[in-house]
Simulated assay, not measured.
Amino acid sequence: MLILLPPSETKAPGGDGPPLDLGVLTAPELTEVRTEVVEAVGKLAGDVPASRAALGLSPRQDAEIARNAELWTGPTRPALERYTGVLYEALDVGSMTRAQRARAGRRLAVGSALFGLVAGDDPIPAYRLSAGSALPGLPTLRTLWRPALAPVLAAVEDLVVDLRSGSYAALAPAPGAVTLDVLSERPDGSRSVVSHFNKAHKGRVARLLASSTAEPGDVVGLRRLLRRAGLHVEHDGGPALTLVVPAP
């Protein structure tokens, strides 16, 4: 089972890993595009006003640009420990047992505007680049990534659970993947999507799937696993599942 997560805008600083080495990241087929994007982002960091415009940053966020200037030289840490925010707080890899953490490292991967895709244990530096960012002199990130990333995702033989947000799913499709919608249900029966709530519950689902000893092979097995965990999951027979949770 492969669980695809969205990245987060916020990243944990520092790390004790060696500087970035694209050669050790998962999916070496992506190295050429990774190199092109990393070089472009690093070069852009030399022009602070241009970086602000391209990355949608304010002067108060210039530290993010400084991080981009050190992509090749800054320390690294595993991807699952680099990304922060609501989803990753709910995932909470730091509280996993050693066995659970090992499974999480194998099963979880993160969609990335900078690297295309990174495995949970891939060592990466802190950076700032979103799927919607426009790098001067380059095509859109979707145009850059799709030809290289789509074949990588298409070649995955295990069940894929795609929890990526729309902008990252648009970088390349994951054929046949199971998707998960999260709906908040009010006492009157009405339902809605709440972004913050959605991220937290996807993080909890990712934790459950990453740490479980079960290995579902299809959407029915996945639905069964989630229901056994006490989750209210609806399934219309297609590749999409709907997780219904009480409104906060």
Rank of each mutant, 00 (worst) to 15 (best):
L5K: 15
A12N: 07
G14C: 04
P28D: 03
T31H: 14
V37Y: 05
G42I: 09
P49T: 05
A50P: 11
S58K: 09
P59Y: 10
A63P: 04
A69S: 07
E70H: 13
E70Y: 05
T73I: 13
P78H: 03
V86Q: 07
L91P: 08
D92G: 03
R107V: 01
R107P: 02
S112T: 03
A113G: 02
L114N: 09
F115M: 14
V118W: 06
P123S: 14
P125M: 02
R128D: 08
L129Y: 04
G137Q: 09
T140L: 11
W145C: 05
A148N: 11
P151C: 00
E157H: 13
E157R: 15
E157Y: 04
R164Y: 13
A169F: 13
L171Q: 11
A174V: 04
P175R: 01
A177D: 01
P187F: 15
S190N: 12
V194D: 08
G203A: 13
L209T: 03
S211M: 03
A214M: 09
P216V: 06
P216E: 04
V220G: 09
R227L: 07
R227E: 11
E234C: 08
E234T: 14
D236N: 11
G237A: 13
P239R: 13
V244H: 09
V244Q: 05
V244M: 07
P248Y: 10
